[in-house]
Amino acid sequence: MPRFMGFVKMEEGIGAPPQALFDAMDKYIGEQSAQGHFLDGGGLFGTEDAVNFVVRKGETTRVDGPYAEAKEVVGGWALLQYDTLEEAIKGQEEFAELHATYWPECSMVATLRQVADEPPAPAEG
């Protein structure tokens, strides 16, 4: 059964979501879990303590947050499982609609990506 990653990107520092969104999310995630669609997920802390390792031209550099240049950051994630891509898309749209309904002041992007079952083939060099 295909697995998917859902990501939520939104502006950082806009405040906490309203309790109504938390309540709706609890109900929705409970239903999705019971149907075997929601496998795991959660919210993420802000970038103030984030650590990035940037690789450029064969060199690795550590860059600590916060990141003033970041307009939107990943604020949450979910590991999902559906029978089809179409079902996964419908589920991600429902998730996004919860935000539109219960936190209309929020601007966010809900991204869905399929998890690869096997690593990509290595590049020939």
Results as ranks from 00 to 15, higher is better:
73 V>P: 01
4 F>A: 07
54 V>C: 02
29 I>H: 02
4 F>N: 03
118 E>Y: 11
93 E>T: 13
61 T>Q: 15
104 P>F: 02
104 P>I: 06
83 D>S: 12
99 H>A: 10
125 G>I: 11
34 A>H: 10
45 F>N: 11
44 L>I: 11
111 T>V: 15
97 E>W: 08
21 L>D: 06
48 E>Q: 14
29 I>C: 03
102 Y>H: 15
84 T>F: 05
105 E>H: 13
73 V>S: 07
67 Y>A: 02
40 D>W: 08
65 G>A: 01
115 V>S: 05
68 A>S: 11
81 Q>Y: 03
66 P>K: 01
92 Q>N: 12
105 E>F: 10
4 F>V: 03
52 N>A: 14
108 M>S: 08
121 A>G: 09
96 A>Q: 13
18 P>H: 07
107 S>W: 01
100 A>L: 14
50 A>L: 10
43 G>R: 13
107 S>E: 14
41 G>K: 07
101 T>R: 15
55 V>P: 00
122 P>D: 11
78 A>T: 06
104 P>C: 03
108 M>V: 08
21 L>Q: 07
48 E>K: 15
5 M>N: 07
99 H>M: 12
74 V>R: 04
31 E>F: 05
64 D>L: 03
34 A>G: 09
33 S>W: 08
33 S>V: 08
102 Y>V: 04
49 D>H: 14
56 R>Y: 05
8 V>P: 02
112 L>E: 10
19 Q>M: 12
19 Q>Y: 01
34 A>E: 15
93 E>W: 10
3 R>T: 13
18 P>E: 12
18 P>N: 07
1 M>P: 13
1 M>C: 07
99 H>C: 02
14 I>S: 09
41 G>L: 13
89 I>R: 13
17 P>A: 14
53 F>R: 11
50 A>G: 03
53 F>P: 01
95 F>Y: 15
14 I>W: 07
34 A>Y: 09
67 Y>K: 01
45 F>V: 12
5 M>P: 00
1 M>Y: 06
4 F>G: 04
103 W>N: 13
8 V>R: 09
1 M>F: 06
104 P>Y: 03
52 N>D: 10
92 Q>I: 10
7 F>P: 04
125 G>M: 10
72 E>I: 00
89 I>M: 11
71 K>Y: 02
46 G>Y: 00
18 P>L: 06
40 D>H: 10
113 R>I: 12
73 V>C: 01
5 M>G: 02
75 G>S: 14
30 G>P: 04
81 Q>S: 14
7 F>N: 05
57 K>P: 00
42 G>M: 11
51 V>Y: 03
48 E>C: 02
4 F>C: 06
54 V>F: 09
11 E>K: 15
65 G>L: 02
96 A>N: 13
88 A>K: 11
50 A>P: 00
57 K>W: 00
35 Q>S: 13
2 P>H: 04
1 M>H: 10
85 L>M: 11
98 L>P: 08
62 R>Y: 00
113 R>N: 05
2 P>R: 01
76 G>C: 05
47 T>C: 00
45 F>T: 14
113 R>Y: 02
49 D>L: 06
78 A>Q: 08
71 K>C: 00
124 E>G: 13
94 E>V: 03
108 M>R: 12
